[in-house]
Design a protein around this nucleic acid. Structure first.
Lengths: 196, 196
DNA sequence: AGAGGAATGTGACATATGTCAATGGTTTCG
DNA sequence: CGAAACCATTGACATATGTCACATTCCTCT
């Protein structure tokens, strides 16, 4: 199955994981599909799986005073998850929604815990992934500290080259901490006087 | 020595670490002091140690166009470190400065790696710490997404109850992503019309 | 006590962004 | 095809924050 091959290739690219480290997962790899607008997680649910995205795209958001606040996106070859809910297996504050028809490979929490428990290599993999997440999130904090709206938009384009082609301005703006109208104006300013 | 007892007490409070897991560190625990304004790390240096703060307080900042951007603070019973530089043992973009006379207990990178290599429990501890850092940093991103300046200030007071008594407005404002004058006005607005 | 410096407060104004309303384009679907 | 829904753009105006200048307070040192 194509999706399964994709996650196996991805896992094999992790340098220090051995074939034995990976074999544990083999029997449990299967694909699940989500239609556009379908929810992978709702507020109050426990996020029981971390899902490898083989195709498509998700957003994670929560409601504040009835308003949707997007906190991030998950693209192909990334793991979609509410990290906080998944780690502690407690109810989520978030919704996760497919923005396109999508295919994922879910890894259940207990499988992952078992994987960690039975191999120091896999435990280490978990540590390094968490460290990577922490580092990327810290960079995002930095972007709020010293960039204005325009700079953050350009930064996002660099991080996610094709995001403007796949995601509506509304969602992108929310994720940048601004309103849709502001992003529209910023984008216009960037396009019309490119050089300066 | 008082500082050493403090980190041992802290380590013993981690539920799943055994006495053997901790004994490895015992011979290497010693205190280092920093005077106010002294640098623990400079840009370009590799952050070779993660330091447990037994007393005092540090800030981490970098220079952008000659301007200091504070990205965080480290208080007592926290680990002061440039996580990115420490993890990958590569040159730092940051400065770390003592804001008060401070005492720390440094844990060298190779000691920590050795600790991870020789115990799955310790490796797990590293994973869980990284996950905690990721979670807290994500919360900080959220604070930029849906809060205005006033709300972020109140949020910080809740996170760090006595920070306004120990850190200058200039540094706090930088860490909140605003100017000193704005924070001064926001604080005034909060104090004068408390109830609303 | 007095001088000097650092931190903070405040006023005036510029700029960026939020908010609301209206418009026009595009997609979707019966 | 045509209607409805969605999305982006734009204008007008309100508000928040940045910027600069200067006043004031607080602290430290002699």
């Amino acid at each position: 199955m194509k999706g399964v091959e994709q996650i196996k290739a991805w896992m094999e690219s992790v340098p220090f994981l051995t074939k034995e480290d990976l074999d544990l997962f083999e029997p449990f790899l299967s694909v699940t599909t989500f239609a556009e607008k379908q929810l992978l997680l709702s507020e109050g649910e426990i996020c029981r799986e971390i899902c490898f995205v083989t195709s498509g795209l998700f957003r994670i958001y929560y409601l504040s005073d009835g308003k949707e606040i997007n906190t991030g996106f998950f693209f192909e070859n990334e793991f979609v998850v509410d990290y906080e809910s998944f780690i502690n297996q407690k109810p989520s504050r978030f919704y996760i929604e497919a923005l396109e028809d999508s295919v994922v490979i879910p890894l259940p929490h207990d499988l992952l815990m078992h994987a960690y428990n039975t191999s120091k290599n896999r435990e280490r993999f978990g540590r390094m992934k968490a460290e990577e997440v922490a580092r990327m999130t810290a960079e995002r904090v930095e972007s709020f500290l010293f960039m204005d709206g325009k700079a953050r938009s350009l930064w996002l384009v660099k991080e996610r080259p094709n995001i403007f082609e796949r995601v509506s301005l509304y969602h992108i703006a929310s994720c940048l901490g601004m309103e849709r109208e502001s992003l529209s104006r910023i984008r216009k300013a960037i396009v019309t006087r490119k050089g300066r």
